[in-house]
Nucleic acid binder design. Sequence first.
DNA 1: ACATGACTGAAACAGTCGTGTCAGTGGAGG
DNA 2: CCTCCACTGACACGACTGTTTCAGTCATGT
Lengths: 177, 177
Amino acid sequence: MPSARETELLEAAYRYVLTHGLADVSLRPLAAAIGSSTRVLLYLFGSKEGLVKALLARARADELVLLADIGTGPGVVARLWEWLSAPAHRPLLTLWLEAYARSLVEPDGPWAGFARATVEDWLEVLRAAQPEDVRDTAAGLASRTRELALLRGALLDLLATGDGERVTSAVGASFAG
Amino acid sequence: MPSARETELLEAAYRYVLTHGLADVSLRPLAAAIGSSTRVLLYLFGSKEGLVKALLARARADELVLLADIGTGPGVVARLWEWLSAPAHRPLLTLWLEAYARSLVEPDGPWAGFARATVEDWLEVLRAAQPEDVRDTAAGLASRTRELALLRGALLDLLATGDGERVTSAVGASFAG
DNA sequence: ACATGACTGAAACAGTCGTGTCAGTGGAGG
DNA sequence: CCTCCACTGACACGACTGTTTCAGTCATGT
C-alpha cells in the first residue's frame, strides 16, 4: 500500500520517463525534474531498481486498462490498432518497446519477464475475442498469434516511420470484415 | 578504410555486444574482454560514439548480406522467416531490436535513423519480390507493409517466448502458397 | 641509420553513478 | 506537551564513466 506521496512522485516520474526513456534514466536528474531528491526516491522505493520496477508496473497498468476496456467479439483487432496508432499513445508505446527489448537483453533485474508477460496478456485478450469453436484449436492459436504479430509489427513500423496512413491501410486490409 | 587492427578489434567487440547487449556497454569491461584497452579503442574509433556507430554499421552489414542473398519472387516471406527464426541468429536479432528501440527513444547520437533505415531496407526487398503489376500500386504498398509487419511482430513474439512452433505455424498459415 | 607513423601502457582528469549517514522537519495522536 | 513517524536536506563514500596526457614500442620505407 503505497503512501500518497509515493504515488504522487511515481506519477511524476512516470511522466518523466515517458518523454526521456527508461534506459539511461538516473536518479539525480529525475529527482530534480520532478521536484524531489534522490534521498526521498530511495527512501520511498528502496533502490533505483525498486523505482524502475514500480515504473514498469505503472506502465503495465496503463496497458491492462486498455485490454480490459477493449471488449471481445469481432473487430477487436481493429479496435486495438486504433488504440495503438493513436498519436497520444506513442510515448507510452515507445516506452513499452524499450522495456520489451531490455527484458530480452538483460533477463535479470527489474525488467525480468516483461516481454513474455505482455505476449501472454495480449494473446489472452485475442483468445477471448475468438469464436468459441476455434478458441481451443491449433488453428485458433495460430490465428491469434498471427493477429498479435501483425499488430506489433505494424506498431514497430509506425513508431519508426510515423507513416500512419500506409501502416493503417496495411492493417486494415487484413481485417476489413 | 579501416586498418587491419581496427577491423580485428571491431569484430571482437561485435562478438562481445552480441552477447552483452549494446545498451549499457562500457569501454573498460569491453576492452578487457577483447584483450585490448580503452586507450586503443579510443585511438582507433575516436570516441565511444564512434565505436558504437561502427558496431551498428557492422550489425547492419550482416542484415544487408541476408537481404542481398534472399532473392526475389514467390516465397520470400517464408525464406525471410526461416532466417529470422533460426536460433543461430537470435543474438543478432536481439541486438537489432535493442538498436531499433534505442533509436526511437534517443533520435540523436549514433543510433539516429536506425529504425527507419531498416524499415526501408526490408520494404524495398519485399517490393522487389512482388509481381510487377502490383509493385507500384497502393495495394502493393499495403501488401508488403503487411508482410513486413507480420515478420517483425512474429519476431518479437519469438524472441520473447522462444516458442518457435507456435509462431512459425502462425507465419506459415499466412503464406502457405 | 633514421625517421615516420601505427599502435600501446600507465596514470590521471573531472564528472556521474547509486547509495549510506546523520541530522533534522513538521504534522498527527496520545 | 510530547512522542512518534513519514518525509526531507546536505553531504560524503567508493565505484565507475568517457576522455586526455605523456610516454613509449615496434615495424616499415627511404
